[in-house]
Design a protein around this nucleic acid. Structure first.
Lengths: 115, 115
DNA sequence: CTGATACATTGACAGATATCAATATGACGA
DNA sequence: TCGTCATATTGATATCTGTCAATGTATCAG
């Protein structure tokens, strides 16, 4: 199911490479990790992520209000976060339910010199 | 010495607020944290940071080569990282020596739901 | 003082991106 | 089937940003 990958972080299940205090990142690794951090580098998107992270599941319809952004913008941000592997979406009926991928967050934390 | 600040992360010495798994960030907090993560969201800059982080001190003159960027670009990136509080620069003679601010990195790690 | 070296700043420009209006897709209820 | 609701996609636009050439500033050697 998971396609073969030589990426640093790989699938959310796999553990990542050495933290940045150990060795400099390769160009390829830096590209991938920067992409993930970039997904969290927008204020609105970071707040969206924190809303999802502070709950079990959040419906898209419950994000427009707190974030004060249009529906397409919310959809755009959830897509960016999902593409980065930071959140996971599940469609149930007409609603889209989002939840964080804890393993992914743990990976990023470890890259930052985590324990 | 440290100016009064109501920011989330505050000075590199102060500990930060609750991790994002506990509560959603305020607009103000998200703005600041996103700025810090944004400093790490560029591949070249992230690699620069990892080079500095994997050593005690790094001279600006030792970054142009590995990163394959012009001197002004390197200077720009170091400034962005320094403004984010992630690295600290010290001029000695004609050379600028950069080192990471470990407390800052630890703060970011804690915001990511760290232990 | 003069020239050279290391870094910072400025200005310009191409590419990325956050945003919304309009539209499309898909699911449910009547 | 029809209309409504929730979300995704497309297209357009204003803003942000990474990059380099040119220039400015500070330090050291002679």
């Amino acid at each position: 199911m998971t396609p073969p990958s030589t990426s640093v972080l790989g699938s959310p299940e796999s553990l990542c490479c050495a933290p940045l205090t150990d060795a400099a990142f390769s160009e390829r690794d830096a590209e991938e990790i920067a992409g993930i951090l970039g997904a969290l580098s927008d204020p609105v998107r970071l707040r969206l992520f924190s809303i999802v992270a502070s709950q079990d599941e959040v419906c898209s319809c419950h994000l427009e209000g707190p974030l004060a952004r249009s529906q397409p913008t919310i959809s755009h941000h959830t897509k960016v976060l999902a593409d980065a592997g930071l959140i996971h979406g599940e469609k149930r009926g007409r609603w889209m339910w989002w939840s964080v991928v804890p393993e992914r967050v743990a990976q990023v934390r470890q890259l930052l010199g985590g324990t």
